[in-house]
Design a protein around this nucleic acid. Sequence first.
DNA 1: GTCTATATCTCGATAGAC
DNA 2: GTCTATCGAGATATAGAC
Lengths: 213, 213
Amino acid sequence: MDTETPYSETEEKIFLAALEEFSLHGKQGARMQQIADRAGITKALIHYYFRSKDRLYEAVFAFVVRRYFINIGENIQPGEHFADTLRNFIDRYIDLLEKQPALPFFILRDIAEGAPVLSAKIREHLLPRKRNLPFLFVSSFEAAVASGEIRQHDPIQTLITVMGACIYFFAGFPVLSVIIPGLKRERARFLAERRDHIFDIVYYGLTPRAENR
Amino acid sequence: MDTETPYSETEEKIFLAALEEFSLHGKQGARMQQIADRAGITKALIHYYFRSKDRLYEAVFAFVVRRYFINIGENIQPGEHFADTLRNFIDRYIDLLEKQPALPFFILRDIAEGAPVLSAKIREHLLPRKRNLPFLFVSSFEAAVASGEIRQHDPIQTLITVMGACIYFFAGFPVLSVIIPGLKRERARFLAERRDHIFDIVYYGLTPRAENR
DNA sequence: GTCTATATCTCGATAGAC
DNA sequence: GTCTATCGAGATATAGAC
């Protein structure tokens, strides 16, 4: 994985082990011993590099947030039509989740505890940027309403719907794969279709409609 | 709250305190002392009734999951049109989440650990029943495709989209309320609109469409 | 059944050798 | 930088009086 940081080899091993352990068990549930085992070193070394469990968690969280909120928000072009913006949003979001499937759990863990760390990170990193993904989504949406491309609707509601539709496949996968036979085996195909499906439903749910039913 | 169990008054106090504490902090993060304080008794009494923290957590989790599956698994009427089924599904699902907002976090915690408990409960409670909510959703969907009410589409993809759209509002609320000014204050109104929004997007995303764009 | 007091244990953190 | 050994805090769990 590209941590984009000048970590030593050992640091990186610890870091990755921690990411996995924290994702699986949360901050409280994670065990330093388990992280050490995963990384193939001893607890003492973790403290040597990261000083404390709190700091280690902080480091992992900061990394995750950078990936999640900043990478996703940068270099994105608002499409000429809302259709392009929407498609772009879905693809980027699913790409991100696919590349780092532990990520939603990591985030949701924090949320489950009232999102103490996450809220701070959002305020610090996401809100100050004008070109972040949610912001672009909303402004592109409003432009499209004005131009008549889509109907009058609430952009925030739509944003939540799209994010939920994307993330739930990953977050709910273990459950879904019990309910839906063959899902595990055909995950890749299903996920590819998922992008089209979400776009299709949402976009045509927004466009001016035929008079029927 | 209706625990539907023949608990003594003290047991019930402990149980409810535990439900709250576990919801807030997870299994590991929860503190027996805190549960005792919430319940207005001492730690020793918790052990008297529930033997160990593990067993207490088990009891709470089993209760939460039972509620979840009982609610989504029974008493649902397939509507005459898919529109009715969809509307019904959304309303029930959001009702359930609203009544028990800690539920997604409980579930997500289990999922993050590979859904050991949840998978078992699904196999045990949901799959054997023919009239469960997902099943009815899919069969109503297919009937509607056949009758021409909606277009050809994948019912499973649609089901995931709807569930994700419903649940993400609750699961993501702490984050969303940071990004979206005023969300916390207007939660009730926003949630009411949410039902209409999801129905509108999804249903008209599925119906035969005007030729435009 | 409920409490106080205490035993036991788990786990993060540190000391110190190499 | 990395290890082994150990400490000490804090949490779960138990004993025993009432």
